[in-house]
Simulated assay, not measured.
Amino acid sequence: MTATVERSRTARAADAAVDAPADGALVLTDIRRSFTQAGDVLEVLRGASCTVRPGELVALVGPSGAGKSTLLHIAGLLEHADGGSIRVGGSDATRLNDAARTALRRRTIGFVYQFHHLLPEFSAEENIVLPQMIAGTARSDARVRARELLALVGLEKRAGHRPAQLSGGEQQRVAIARALANRPQVLIADEPTGNLDHHTAESVFAMLADLVHGQGVGALVATHNLDLARRMDRVLEMRDGLLVEV
């Protein structure tokens, strides 16, 4: 466990409060979502609420089918809720149209999944440059940012390698660097270490924690690994469609 992960929760909260949006990096209030299956209404989210502060690493736990992925999709502006409100980086996203949601998502949210989803025909550096260019960053500036992030994740010497030339842990490190490329205020991660062996998962988690705390990003991380969850700043459990801090 790194020194950063071992810092007290109080110290981390104080660090996160500096220049933080008054209402948190991510604020979900009374989120509701239901689905209809074979004529029956299934209430997946029944008023889930939480606040993730800048520089805070929050675990989201619960059994499969409890609604974690649905909540992450709503938090990441990939899916609409049936009710409730969502604020990202201080902006109210509740009633935005699809174009405005896409623009806000691109500007403020980064995503990390269990599988890295890197573009196989591009190098590690290029995989980090591309999302920046899509967001309007000049290629030269995007390359500087990509090299900075690769150095932070310990892969500056692997910048020219394609995903197939990287190990699983290295691929996931590039995926995390890519998620942070546009300097998001919120990081949404769904089982980011779930596809890795224990030793590699430990290494990737330590790096992720260092980056979240160091870059001041508010991170909501779904995981089935309770050991990793307990080492995050807070743990939220999905229980009967609600979020309960444990």
Rank of each mutant, 00 (worst) to 15 (best):
Leu118Cys: 14
Ala59Gly: 01
Pro54Asn: 03
Pro21Asn: 11
Cys50Leu: 04
Ala38Leu: 04
Asn97Lys: 09
Leu104Met: 02
Ala13Ile: 13
Ala14Tyr: 13
Ala38Pro: 04
Ala14Gln: 15
His80Ser: 05
Gly136Cys: 03
Phe115Ser: 04
Gly24Cys: 01
Val5Trp: 08
Val61His: 04
Val41Glu: 12
Ile74Glu: 07
Gly110Ala: 05
Arg106His: 14
Arg143Ile: 03
Ala13Asn: 11
Ala75Lys: 03
Ile86Pro: 00
Arg145His: 09
Ala14Phe: 15
Met133Ser: 06
Leu60Trp: 06
Asp82Glu: 13
Thr36Pro: 15
Leu149Met: 12
Thr51Asp: 11
Thr94Ser: 14
Ala93Phe: 01
His116Val: 04
Arg101Leu: 04
Gly55Pro: 08
Arg9Met: 12
Arg87Lys: 15
Leu149His: 02
Leu118Glu: 14
Leu28His: 01
Phe122Val: 13
Val144Ala: 06
Glu79Ser: 07
Ala81Ser: 03
Val5Leu: 05
Leu96Gly: 10
Ala93Ser: 08
Leu104Trp: 07
Pro54Phe: 10
Arg12Gly: 14
Arg95Cys: 13
Asp141Pro: 05
Leu78Gly: 13
Leu60Gly: 03
Gly62Pro: 07
Asn97Gln: 11
Ala138Glu: 01
Val41Phe: 05
Tyr113Ile: 03
Ala14Leu: 12
Glu56Asn: 05
Ala146Trp: 10
Ala100Thr: 13
Ala124Lys: 01
Arg87Gly: 05
Ser64Glu: 00
Val61Thr: 00
Ile128Phe: 13
Ala146Ile: 09
Arg105Ile: 07
Gly55His: 08
Asp98Val: 09
Gly24Arg: 09
Val44Cys: 08
Arg9Pro: 14
Val144Thr: 15
Ala25Asp: 00
Thr4Tyr: 07
Ala38Trp: 01
Ala135Gln: 01
Arg53Val: 10
Thr102Phe: 05
Thr94Ile: 04
Val5Glu: 04
Ala138Phe: 01
Ala59Asn: 02
Arg53Ala: 14
Arg12Lys: 12
Arg101Pro: 07
Phe111Val: 15
Val18Glu: 09
Thr10Gln: 09
Asp82Cys: 08
Gly67His: 08
Ile128Thr: 02
Val61Arg: 00
Leu78Cys: 07
Lys68Met: 10
Val129Leu: 02
Gly24Lys: 05
Ala22Asn: 06
Ala17Gly: 14
Ile128Lys: 15
Ala142Cys: 06
Asp40His: 14
Leu45Tyr: 00
Gly90His: 02
Phe122Lys: 07
Arg7Thr: 15
Ser91Tyr: 02
Leu96Tyr: 11
Gln114Tyr: 13
Leu118Ser: 10
Gly136Asp: 05
Ala11Phe: 11
Cys50Gly: 06
Ala38Glu: 02
Asp23Tyr: 02
Leu96Val: 08
Arg101Lys: 03
Ile31Trp: 11
Glu148Gly: 06
Leu119Cys: 06
Thr51Ser: 15
Pro54Trp: 01
Leu45Gln: 08
Ala81Leu: 04
Leu42Ile: 07
Ala100Glu: 14
